[in-house]
Amino acid sequence: MDRIILIFAITLGVYAALAGLTWTQRLVGERRTGRKRGMVLNLARRAGPPMMGGAILLTAGAVMDLPGAAPLAAVVIAGGLAYGLHRGLAEVGQGDRRSLGFRLAVTLGLTLAILWQAGLA
């Protein structure tokens, strides 16, 4: 079961990294300061609570010595960040099928390469 959770966490992490690069590119390209602050605030509003929940889960798992807390916390943190960045990109017009399809294809390729190099695939 830990192997499946690890693969899921890696996939979400790779997608979050790619979406983060695209989101940062859009943030740098914005001219108005108010729009930049709004993008950052929306990201914090969407990705912040799941990431804080994952950090609390990780801390509670270390304190209570729970064996499955770390992989679950990784999935929650990566999923929260991926969701926040994905919704942020959808708001600024980067959520169409073409850009999303490209991001998903690159995510699949990078995830398979990472899993192959790690010996999990």
Rank of each mutant, 00 (worst) to 15 (best):
G95M: 01
M51E: 08
L57F: 06
P49T: 13
F102D: 01
L57K: 10
T111M: 05
A44Y: 01
A70T: 15
H86N: 07
L85A: 05
G53S: 15
R103W: 00
G61F: 10
Q94D: 08
L57I: 09
A82Q: 13
A113Y: 15
T111L: 03
P67I: 11
A9D: 02
G79A: 13
L100S: 13
P71K: 14
R37P: 00
R32I: 01
D96I: 00
A82C: 12
L57T: 08
I10M: 07
A82H: 11
L21A: 11
R103N: 03
A17C: 04
G61C: 12
T107W: 07
G93F: 02
L18D: 05
A73E: 09
A70H: 14
R37D: 04
V40S: 06
I5K: 11
V75T: 10
P50H: 14
Q94C: 05
V14N: 02
G48T: 05
V106K: 15
V63C: 03
M52T: 12
V28S: 06
L85N: 05
R35Y: 04
G68D: 14
A73L: 10
R3V: 01
L100W: 08
P67Y: 13
L58Y: 08
M1G: 11
P71Q: 12
R35E: 07
A16F: 04
L100T: 13
H86F: 04
G84W: 00
G61R: 14
L21R: 13
